[in-house]
Design a protein around this nucleic acid. Structure first.
Lengths: 226, 226
DNA sequence: TCAAAAGTGTTTAAAGTACACCCATGA
DNA sequence: TCATGGGTGTACTTTAAACACTTTTGA
C-alpha cells in the first residue's frame, strides 16, 4: 500500500480564514485543485513527511502542525490504493513566500468558499475545519495565524471569523488578557483606527508552558462538534 | 509499506481502568505482551480493520472506537517497515467473552500497572490514556464502559478512577443529572450499600443527539493535557 | 468638533464549590 | 440502634454576560 500525507494549510488575511490549495500538474486529475501532499519517504516518519511537504510549498519551517485523521477507503485513489494521513497547519500568511506559489500553482481560497477538490480532499478540509474550531475553543492555537505583533481587535476579528460570531470586545479582552499569555507593547497600530490599538506579543515562555492548558475563550463551546 | 492497526481496549472493573493485552504467539517477540493488532485487508478501510480486530478478540460488535494517532517511525517494527494507526475502544468488561481470552492469550491489566509491551505499544497506551482523560472531561464517553444499568456512585467511582481524584458526591450528582442524559430507574442496586442506590440508564436518543456537545463534568479541566 | 474605534467599569445572572444535613437499612 | 453509604439542601464564591461609559484622534 502507498502511504501519503496531505496538508490542510490555514492562513488568516485579517478578515477571514483561508486555505492554501495547489493545482495538480500530473495525472490523474491534472489541472484540478487539491491539497498539497506527498508520499512518505523511506527514512522519514509521517510528521516529518508532512513538514517536508509544507516547507516545499511555503518555504516555512517550525510551523504549527497537527495530525488530523487517516483516510483509507480502498478506492479513494483510483490509480493505486493509497493511505493518506492528513495534517493541518497554521501559518502567518505574510511569511508565506509568494514565488513558490507560481512554482506549485498554489492559491489561497476562503475556507467559506473554495473549489471542488480531488479524491476525498473536500472531506479532509471539512474535518480540519471542525477540528480547528474545536481545538481553538480550548487552546490558544490561533495565535499561530497572526504575526509576532498583533492587536486585540485583530485577534478578536480572527476568533469571530473562525466561529462566525460577533463577540463583546470588553469580555473578549478580559478573557484573553486573563490568560496571562499576552505582553502589552508600548507601540500602537494606527492603521485601522484613529485612536490606535496597542500591540501585544505572546509570552513565549508561558505560551509553551501553558499551551495544553484548557482555556475558555469562546462563548457556548457546548455547541461545538468534533 | 505494510499498514496495520492496533487497538487500545479499555474496560472498567468497578474499581479501576484496565486494558486488554495479548501475548504474542509469533515471532518476533514471541511470548511478549502487546496490543491486539492486525494488518489492513485489501477490501477494508482502517476503521473497519480496527473493528474486525476488536471483534476477533472480544466477540463484541458496535463498540465505541476512535482513531488515536498514527505511529510511523521507519524502524518501529524491526522486521519490515510498518505503519500502524492506533484506535482506542471502550467495552463493557462484563460482556467480554472469556473463552476468547485463552485463544488469544489475552489478559486484563490495570492501566496504572501493566507490563512492558513490544515495539512502541507502551507509547500508544500512554497517548490513549491522555486522550481518554481529555475527551472524557468534555464528552460523556465513559458511559460506554458501564453496563446498561448503573448507579451514580458507580459512575462517580469511574470518573474518580480515570482522573485519580475524589469528587464531591453532591456536586457530581447535580452535574451529571443536569445533562439530562440519565433516566432514573425504579430499581435499586443493593449490592454495595444497605440503603441501595438507584439504577440509571442512558437516554439513548439524547445521548446520540448530544454526544458531541461539550459537557463539563470534571473540575479544573485546565490541568489536562492532550 | 464629532464620528469611530479602543479601552474601562459596573451590574446582574449563572455556574461551581464546600459542606452540613437527612434518609434508609442490614448487621 | 447505629454505622454506613446514598441522597438532598443551602450558603458562598467565582465566572461569565450584557451593556453603559470614557478615551483618543484624524478628518
Amino acid at each position: 500500500m502507498l502511504v501519503a500525507v496531505d496538508c490542510i494549510i490555514f492562513g488568516f488575511d485579517g478578515k477571514e480564514l483561508k486555505i492554501l490549495l495547489v493545482q495538480r500538474h500530473l495525472e490523474p486529475e491534472l489541472g484540478k485543485w487539491s491539497l498539497m501532499g506527498g508520499f512518505v519517504q523511506p527514512e522519514e516518519n509521517l510528521k516529518q513527511a508532512a513538514a517536508r511537504v509544507l516547507t516545499l510549498l511555503t518555504g516555512l519551517t517550525n510551523v504549527y502542525m497537527e495530525e488530523l485523521l487517516s483516510f483509507s477507503e480502498p478506492n479513494r485513489d483510483p490509480v493505486e490504493r493509497t493511505l493518506s494521513v492528513a495534517y493541518f497547519a497554521f501559518i502567518d500568511i505574510n511569511k508565506y513566500e509568494q514565488q513558490l506559489s507560481t512554482e506549485y500553482h498554489a492559491e489561497w481560497f476562503p475556507l467559506a468558499n473554495f473549489p471542488k477538490l480531488i479524491f476525498d480532499h473536500n472531506i479532509m478540509v471539512q474535518k480540519a475545519k471542525a477540528r480547528v474550531q474545536y481545538k481553538a475553543a480550548f487552546h490558544p492555537i490561533l495565535f499561530e495565524l497572526l504575526p509576532a505583533k498583533f492587536t486585540l481587535p485583530q485577534l478578536q476579528s480572527l476568533y469571530q471569523g473562525v466561529y462566525d460570531v460577533t463577540m463583546d470586545k470588553g469580555n473578549f479582552s478580559r478573557k484573553v488578557l486573563s490568560t496571562g499569555l499576552l505582553v502589552k507593547q508600548a507601540e500602537k497600530d494606527k492603521a485601522s483606527s484613529k485612536k490606535g490599538a496597542y500591540y501585544y506579543k505572546l509570552d513565549k515562555r508561558k505560551y509553551n508552558a501553558n499551551f495544553h492548558a484548557v482555556l475558555n475563550i469562546i462563548p457556548n463551546p457546548d455547541t461545538l462538534y468534533i
